[in-house]
Simulated assay, not measured.
Amino acid sequence: MSRPIGTPVTAELVRGALELEPTAVGVRPHRLPAWALAQADRDPQLSMAESQPAGVRIVFATTATSVELTALATRYGFRGAPARPPGSFDLVLDGRLVAGATLRRPTMITIDPSTGAAETVPGEPESLVFDDLPAGEKVVEIWLPHNESVELGQLRTDRPVAPVRTGRPVWLHHGSSISHGSNAARPTGTWPVIASLAGGVDLINLGFGGSALLDPFTARTIRDTAADLISLKLGVNLVNADLMRLRALGPAVHGFLDTIRDGHPDVPLLVVSPIHCGIHEDTPGPGAFDPAALARGEIRFVATGDPAERAAGKLTLSVIRERLARIVAQRAVEDDNLH
């Protein structure tokens, strides 16, 4: 039996992350750079969302028949609500999902939805083992959990590993919790991953649950990241957070697109308006936890605004859809690659 070969997880083996933070375990993948988080004053919601590695995967070529990864997860839950399913590490061989594994001893952060207070119970690193892999050369992808932060230690294999460069086009997508993967059962089941695998592209998923807020630092991050196709799903979090009024929306969208175009003047750029969300179609935010649902042990949301407030410029999804369509039509006159 071959002695295990230890390989540190480095940037040349990781795709979909924009930064790797050194930790006591190894590295923690981030989907926003540290300077961007600093500009957001390390907002707790954004910090949680961007550290959950949706769309991030470890990729390498090998003839190994056994792969082991040491990792520590940070898992989030809400007091009074059922525990969320543990995040899955999905093993994909030559483009085919063959296995999944979860960590049993995560750091657990439990949030009280009524106060925002959090309780932390530390976890410990453990090993995920994928044995009995087929012999011969193959491309191995380990898709990381989309719904929990992870620290990655060493890879251990019974044969050497090598980085892989596919040469496939890069698709960069930015959006809200649906793009992040809200309620998907596993990382390869989020819609951006399904679409990227079907389309034969390399994904960078900048979907941040609750945090697609037209932040200038997100636009600058997209501007400075190599991509062959960019898509932006905008709007619902602006209403959830009651972040701005109609007067500010148009200039904010124009500025966001202008910044991206500074770095990607000709890349195809798709703007996607919000899908249906019944509570906010014609009722402004902010959104809030539904106390009646919490009493039943469920997580649901309500809109706390007043439809009459639209006259004063409060945003709803129907208002945002109309304004986004107008902005894209206006800009597309001089931008053939804006859709």
Rank of each mutant, 00 (worst) to 15 (best):
S2A: 09
P4V: 05
T7L: 00
P8Q: 00
T23M: 03
G26A: 08
R31Y: 08
A34T: 13
L37I: 02
L37M: 14
P44F: 11
S47H: 04
S51E: 13
A54T: 03
F60V: 04
T63R: 13
T65A: 07
L69K: 13
T70S: 05
A71N: 04
Y76F: 15
G77C: 10
F78M: 14
G80Y: 03
G87D: 12
S88H: 15
F89L: 07
L93C: 02
A99S: 13
L103V: 07
T107N: 02
I109H: 01
A118S: 11
A118L: 04
G123D: 09
F130I: 10
D132Y: 05
P134D: 08
A135L: 05
E137V: 07
H146I: 02
H146D: 00
N147K: 06
L152N: 02
T157S: 13
H173N: 02
S182G: 04
A195Q: 02
L197A: 01
L197N: 00
L197I: 00
D202W: 06
L206C: 12
G207A: 09
L214Q: 08
D215A: 15
T218S: 11
A219I: 06
T221P: 05
D228T: 11
L229N: 01
L229H: 14
L246E: 12
V253G: 03
G255R: 15
D258K: 11
T259P: 08
P265C: 01
H276I: 08
C277Y: 00
I279F: 14
P286C: 15
P291S: 12
A295R: 13
R296K: 11
P307S: 12
P307G: 12
E309A: 15
R310I: 14
L315H: 06
R326I: 03
R326Y: 04
V328C: 00
V333I: 09
E334N: 11
N337A: 15
